[in-house]
Design a protein around this nucleic acid. Structure first.
Length: 771
DNA sequence: TCTATCACATTTTTT
DNA sequence: ATGTGATAGA
């Protein structure tokens, strides 16, 4: 039995055993890509390639950790260098910092730090934000860096008007970063790429040090990453990249789809392997995904197939409004958990935009279904955490202006905006860090003597903290808390019993420090801790283990899989997003986004849209996403849950909203019902026109209950009746209670004389005799 | 210098 | 609906 080579398909084995020369692995969703990559590394090691010569680059920490663990399992021994691009660059910069004008204790700015710095740069450059925004400028600068454009190389380059201002800010921003001995995320890549380009002997050394390079999710690489990878594989072209053009959803962040589309041109001797067999989804789901993505032009053809058994038809539900959508999905989940042995963790609800999870949250909470939201901002973005980390950063790198600005007056020390403006002016004039400017505050004439005293006291605090810099992280952090009286500050700024969260978060950070000390008994430096923290993301915190329904954006769902998936808000202007409508490239990316969502599903999938969607506080009509037209309707189950709503029985919107004719939204759905599984195909539903107004109905939830109740007429049951249950056998109905969807029967079973209660709308009770 | 109030915008966000 | 950022007043 060969752990590494057995149980692989032919294409998989071909990829695993490929050793020298470039390789492109086109891996469809659920095709066992991670398995192939890890097995290939194990194979390389077994064939005698030293672990130190292998470098595997991923985009997420999670992917890197997972691969590392799996390789360790297959081939225990010296670990292979597996990390994210950014972590790799962080290490390189640490080692070769002087080549790009940094010191080795440089800081890594997160988005917030970077934006704050840009804001300063904008002020310094004297540009008005009236025709643009900070976000736009930040985006543009990020793009410059991803395109390997330095401020110098951009001089004289013609730019669209939208980017002109950003280009003006760019050099000022870079200057501030340099003075602060700091980099932002994009800089890390840019610096390393430049370093490799400008230092041929270093490039060569690293090229032969990392003889075997693997890149995961290659479709998401930007130009900077591309340049780094190419530089490291000029002499030793043992570059294996894996990816799927159809799953490229980060174009807006600078990812260049051409990197993977042109890989075969870049490396003519490339060996291309296609992994087309899917192990994840039912054929039904896969066909829907495949048919959708066929509409894209910028792709490499893959013929996806699976040997998995046929499953339930993919559902498309059209709801009257977003609340009904949320309630119905929550009801479905409850039903599946109660009666079909599902757990909350089997479900994922995906959406284009974060705010769409709100109504779902509400519906789940009211039904006491546990859920988590995977959001962009979490623990390390919390104010108290950022504050404390800023103290640590300042100790590690006193030039870190972003950290200083954050905590110079937190807790309050009487150093306000006016003072800091003067300090900043002085710092900018002398091109020195803020901390140095504060140390030299005697030279700043505009600052009053009293304030100088306050500034000096601040310097004293930082100095005393710095003297502790080499103690354990836990001690250091506790010392910071003590010296700055930060805990008191939190307690005082607390409104009324509300904010004990903040103190708990502080405790959690201390725990993280303790844990770090434990894991790094010898090499634990402040620098390492800060680097680790800076490059952590919040999606990493998502615990797979907890038994909860997962709510997240389609972007966050990449790489994950769930038995049951709901994709909500499949509406025009939402998916595709209205800002991606015009540009065909972006439009295709939106289609890929839906493709990614669909292919997360293992067993069941429901796409849904609402005819009315509340956005920005008000109800607006929504039209079907154009992508819905591209799906194979004939094999899907289309359910138009059109019902009158609390928003008016004579719903004006109904007439106004335009639906593609092919969808036949309001027609009778006998066809569709015939595709339902038998238990859902009761005479009641077919004979009751679904558009009939139900006068007494007030909320969407009640409507749904009614609807459900109608599927099985509860009134056919009477007390004393003998019924049969699939699990417990025969029994007698003792009593009946409730009404509508809550109509409940208490049954005493003959087999054990135990009474059990069932909701008639859900339970599978069959009548054996009337008496 | 701090605090309260108001206007404003609001896609997605691996690092 | 909700949060953030700027501004004005204490």
């Amino acid at each position: 039995m060969d752990l590494i080579l057995d149980n692989l398909t032919d294409p998989q084995r071909a990829a695993v055993t490929h050793m020298d020369g470039p390789m492109l692995m086109l891996a469809g969703p659920g095709s066992g890509k991670t398995r192939v990559v890890t097995h290939r590394i194990a194979h390389l090691l077994r064939e005698g390639v030293p672990a130190s010569q292998i470098l595997a680059l991923t985009f997420t920490n999670k992917a890197a950790e997972e691969m590392l663990a799996r390789v360790q399992q297959l081939a225990p021994g010296e670990p292979v260098w597996m990390s994210t691009f950014h972590r790799f660059c962080a290490r390189m910069l640490r080692q070769y910092s002087s080549l790009v004008g940094l010191q080795e204790n440089y800081s890594i700015y997160d988005m917030a730090d970077a934006k704050a710095t840009m804001k300063r740069a904008i002020e310094v450059s004297g540009i008005s934000l009236s025709h643009t925004s900070l976000d736009q400028i930040a985006n543009a600068i990020s793009h410059f860096k991803n395109q390997l454009l330095t401020p110098e190389s951009m001089e004289g380059v013609n730019l669209p008007a939208g980017k002109m201002l950003a280009a003006k800010v760019y050099p000022y921003y870079q200057q501030l970063l340099l003075v602060a001995n700091a980099v932002d995320f994009d800089c890390m890549l840019l610096h390393v790429a430049r370093m490799l380009r400008e230092n041929p002997e270093l490039r060569e050394a690293l090229d032969s040090r990392f003889r075997y390079i693997m890149v995961d999710e290659y479709q998401d690489t930007n130009l900077a990453q591309y340049a780094i990878v190419r530089s490291l594989s000029v002499v030793h072209q043992n570059l294996a990249v894996t990816g799927d053009p159809d799953q490229s959803i980060y174009g807006w962040r600078g990812a260049n789809l051409n990197n993977i589309l042109d890989f075969e041109n870049d490396y003519p001797q490339v060996k291309t392997v296609r992994l087309e067999q899917n192990y994840r989804s039912t054929p039904n789901i896969l066909r829907v995904a495949d048919q959708l993505i066929t509409n894209n032009t910028r792709r490499k053809h893959k013929g996806l197939y699976t040997h998995n058994p046929e499953g339930a038809a993919v559902r498309l539900r059209i709801y009257a409004n977003g609340y009904q959508e949320a309630d119905d999905i929550a009801d479905q989940i409850v039903e599946q958990i109660q009666n079909h042995g599902r757990s909350p963790k089997d479900f994922a609800i995906l959406c284009r935009m974060n705010y769409l999870t709100r109504s779902l949250e509400h519906s789940l909470r009211s039904r006491v279904v546990p859920y988590t939201i995977v959001r962009g901002v979490e623990f390390y973005q919390r104010k108290e955490i950022k504050d404390l980390l800023s103290y640590l950063q300042l100790i590690n790198n006193p030039a870190n202006d972003a950290a200083l600005s954050r905590i110079v007056n937190t807790p309050a020390r009487g150093i306000g905006k006016t003072t800091m403006d003067r300090v900043m002016l002085f710092a900018a004039r002398h091109r020195i860090p803020l901390f140095e400017a504060i140390c030299r505050c005697d030279e700043i004439e505009s600052i009053k003597p009293r304030t100088r005293g306050l500034l000096k006291r601040f310097v004293g605090i930082i100095d005393s903290l710095s003297r502790k810099a080499s103690s354990s992280l836990e001690d250091l952090l506790r010392f910071v808390l003590e010296q700055t009286q930060y805990s008191d500050y939190l307690r005082f700024s607390t409104v009324e019993g509300e904010d004990n969260d903040a103190l708990a978060n502080v405790d959690e950070l201390v725990s993280a420090a303790v844990e770090f000390d434990r894991q790094h008994p010898d090499d634990g430096s402040l620098e390492t801790f800060l680097e680790q923290v800076a490059l952590i993301s919040d999606t990493d915190a998502w615990e797979e283990s907890s038994d909860r329904v997962t709510l997240m954006t389609l972007h966050a769902a990449k790489g994950l899989e769930f038995p049951c998936v709901y994709i909500i808000g499949v509406e025009d202007q939402v998916l595709p997003h209205h800002r991606s409508h015009d540009d065909p490239m972006q439009f295709e990316e939106e289609r890929r986004l839906l493709f990614v969502g669909i292919t997360r599903a293992e067993q069941t999938l429901q796409l849904s849209m609402a005819k009315l969607r509340s956005a920005r506080g008000s109800m607006r009509p929504a039209a079907a996403s154009p992508f819905l037209l591209e799906l194979p309707r004939e094999e899907m189950q289309v359910i138009d849950a059109h019902q009158p709503t609390q928003y008016g029985d004579d719903n004006d919107f109904d007439v106004d909203v335009e639906y593609p004719e092919a969808w036949d939204m309001h027609a009778d759905h006998d066809d569709d019902l015939n595709q339902l599984p038998p238990e859902e195909r009761t005479p009641e539903t077919t004979s009751t026109p679904r558009t009939a107004p139900i006068a007494s109905v007030t909320t969407a939830a009640q409507m749904l209950e009614q609807q459900m109740a109608n599927t099985i007429d509860p009134d056919i049951y009477t007390v004393g009746m003998i019924v049969s249950h699939p699990e417990y056998g025969s029994g007698r109905i003792q009593s009946l209670s409730g009404s509508g969807g809550k109509r409940t029967a208490t049954v005493n079973f003959f087999v054990d004389s135990i009474e059990r209660r069932f909701r008639l709308s859900h339970a599978q009770l069959t009548i054996e005799s009337e008496d």
